[in-house]
Design a protein around this nucleic acid. Structure first.
Lengths: 259, 259
DNA sequence: GGCTGTGAATACATTCACAGCA
DNA sequence: TGCTGTGAATGTATTCACAGCC
């Protein structure tokens, strides 16, 4: 009888089976390496939900920057990012105080800070596993979102594919995942295999020293605590949409044409 | 013109820009149908976060069912779905009381209830817009996740693609989106175009009567209130992973490789 | 005994509203 | 004056813990 009581702190062997479910990760803590130096890592924590939005702000800001904007107000940036300005300011405040009251934020400064916080000053080499339709598409993304995430290894189990270059990279065999990932310093593994293969692939990626997994296969992966998993699940997305259609139909009652 | 769901007393305030939903991964703002003004409002409101998990439970249950399981306990189902059992029971309780104390849930019953709640008893025809690498992959998914979501229209702007069948469906021109969607009764539009085209495509989908959009383009879409948008953003996913790597690296104390 | 269902308690996230600074 | 930054207030989601039923 496992008492639910004591699973709070001792993470010892506790081996929680729960895998991060997209939004299951609580706020992340991070050392605030603010300019103040000296002081040791005062650990500020950025809510997980905010992190996702920071990435969006960064993209919007980059676009603004390219169009020559040098400064931007929270209201403007918020609108462009599809959030309200209070939330935006709160989110940005987690980085520190980089705005100017009465004026707004300097675009370049904000971009730099966001890149720093998001760890984009470093390269993250990506491996794509499963070169089917989706994997092929991902491999051809060629350097994923605006560099910073170069695809440097591809894997599949199909003998006809092994050695064939896709997007400039030859496909290796699934068995070689640990070795190749290790050699090439892969830090992010993208799983685009059929569901039954996903767990094995994940295991091998972990063996190869991969720290993060982006999982497109509709299965719950079991990985060690130090590996971060995010999941993209098309079926779930569609079903959520379906739910909203259904709910709407019920709410409206009869008379409404619903597809 | 069919009345597009009139607003409940309480929320008459808002009429600003249809705030496109933030993101789906970490959090989601709900269309706030919170209060059930009417007495007979049998539609218990289910938390958005729970809905996403219900879809996962359904998949796991379907697999269990195929393996011959007829009954399942919350602990078992929870483990398989990657959540804890308290959360699972709470989630299932939103559907009603379909379990048996001391025993567990009957798999078939639960599957049926989940399908009902998620609106899967009805078909949702899908259109894919943008037949590039990703769109191609999506189109070839052929009926998407285990039927219920048949792909019935494809669109692109490239003249060389128009008329060419992909996964059995000929590609139509972007301009024909409203007409074709309307004719074929498309209810879900999947946007896999380059970013600049996305908003225009969304507008046309809405014109064609589409109620839901799954957006792979990294832009914030503006749509009317009655249209539900969900977004899948690879760049954001990778950057969130990057954030966690960076945080971990800093905690460990070694310098970051900057280039 | 085993397991569900659920109020109560807690944790997390968003919004409000205003002090404080350029 | 205009806009940021943030505590306080509100709203949502998760977890606890146990009553109730098999």
């Amino acid at each position: 009888m496992v008492s639910q009581r004591d699973r709070r702190n001792g993470s010892a062997v506790a081996r929680k089976l729960s895998t991060p479910d997209a939004d299951n990760a609580p706020t992340a803590e991070m050392p605030a390496v603010t300019e103040n130096g000296g002081e040791e890592a005062r650990v500020r924590s950025i809510p997980e939900a905010a992190v996702a939005r920071l990435a969006v702000y960064l993209r919007v800001l980059s676009a603004m920057s390219e169009q020559g904007a040098t400064t931007v107000a929270s209201e403007e940036l918020a609108t462009a990012a599809g959030v309200n300005s209070a939330k935006l300011r709160k989110d940005l405040s987690y980085l520190g105080s980089y705005g100017t009251r009465g004026v707004g934020y300097e675009v370049a400064v904000l971009v730099a800070q966001l890149e720093r916080i998001l760890g984009l000053t470093r390269q993250h080499k990506v491996a794509v596993v499963g070169i089917g339709n989706l994997g092929h598409a991902l491999a051809n993304y060629g350097g994923f979102p605006g560099r910073g995430f170069p695809v440097e290894a591809l894997f599949d189990i199909d003998p006809d594919l092994i050695g064939v270059p896709v997007g400039g990279i030859p496909v290796s065999h699934l068995n070689d995942i640990p070795e190749v990932c290790s050699e090439r310093g892969i830090s992010i593994g993208v799983i685009a295999t059929p569901p039954p293969a996903a767990q094995t692939v994940a295991d091998r990626l972990v063996q190869g020293g991969v720290q993060c997994v982006l999982n497109f296969a509709p299965v719950v992966l079991q990985v060690p605590d130090h590996v971060e998993v995010r999941k993209v699940d098309l079926a779930v997305e569609l079903q959520i949409l379906s739910f909203h259609v259904a709910r709407r139909a019920e709410n409206v009652g009869n008379g409404m044409v619903v597809r």
